[in-house]
Amino acid sequence: MRKNHLNHKLRAYNLQEILIVLAIIGILLLLALPRLMPLISKTKSLEAQTQLKQIYNMQTTFRYMHSKYSLDFDEIDFEAPNTVNQNGTANYSYEITEATGSTFKAVATAVVDFDGDGVFNIWEIDQNGNPKQVVKD
């Protein structure tokens, strides 16, 4: 005898059950997100620190060769990554704001407001090679 598969019911979730589960997950995310924002900002700031250390290394090499620091990224062979505003992946824009024979200062400014408070994160590095957070997001 052949069984009729059309009359056989499958166990499944209905639309209401799935919507209730999604609503609960959404509420849990809303509760957890404020606690995660500082961690997200801290993680994204690692990009600025890494790039600023790279600028420091390139500036140091340039100074050994030319006895001065440079204001130009091309002279030190640093290529700034494209920001998210330029269809890239970088969250910071980079600039050398000061360069003399014995000092330099480079700044990384966030192009994204990580926590939505209107304050953009800013990091800087100088000839001493220690990145410092100037404006905390």
Rank of each mutant, 00 (worst) to 15 (best):
T43A: 10
L6K: 05
P131M: 05
E17G: 13
S70P: 01
L31Y: 02
T83G: 06
A110M: 07
I96N: 03
L36W: 11
Q59T: 02
E47F: 06
W123M: 09
I122T: 13
A48P: 00
K53Y: 02
A80Q: 09
V119H: 00
E98D: 11
R63A: 15
L52D: 07
D77M: 08
I122N: 01
I25Y: 05
F120S: 03
Y64G: 15
S93W: 00
Y92H: 10
L71S: 12
N121T: 00
E17H: 04
F62Q: 06
G116N: 13
G88S: 07
M1S: 13
N121S: 06
N4I: 06
L71T: 11
H8Y: 12
D74M: 08
Y94E: 09
M65F: 10
I55L: 10
T100P: 00
N121C: 03
N14R: 09
P38A: 11
L6Q: 11
I76K: 03
F104H: 01
L19C: 06
P131Y: 08
L15S: 07
L19F: 12
G118T: 02
Q59G: 02
A90Q: 14
L30W: 02
G118R: 01
G101Q: 15
L10Q: 12
F104A: 09
I55G: 04
V84Y: 03
F62A: 13
Y13F: 15
E79C: 04
L29R: 00
D126I: 04
K105T: 15
Y13H: 01
R2H: 10
N7P: 00
K44I: 05
T97E: 09
M37D: 00
E79W: 01
M1L: 12
A23H: 00
V107F: 06
D113V: 08
T83F: 05
S67P: 01
Q127D: 09
N121K: 07
S67Q: 14
K44T: 02
I18M: 09
L28A: 14
V107E: 13
K9T: 02
Y13E: 02
V111R: 02
T109Y: 04
Q49C: 04
Y56N: 12
T97L: 08
A108R: 02
V84F: 05
A108D: 01
Q54E: 15
S67H: 13
I24C: 12
L15H: 00
D77F: 08
A90C: 11
D137F: 04
T83M: 10
V111W: 09
T109I: 07
K136G: 06
E98C: 01
V107I: 15
F62M: 13
K136L: 12
A23M: 12
R11Q: 15
S70G: 06
D74W: 04
M1W: 06
F78R: 09
V135T: 14
R35W: 05
F78K: 03
L28M: 14
M37K: 11
Y13T: 10
A108W: 04
N14T: 13
Q133V: 14
L46K: 11
R2Q: 10
M65Q: 14
Q59I: 04
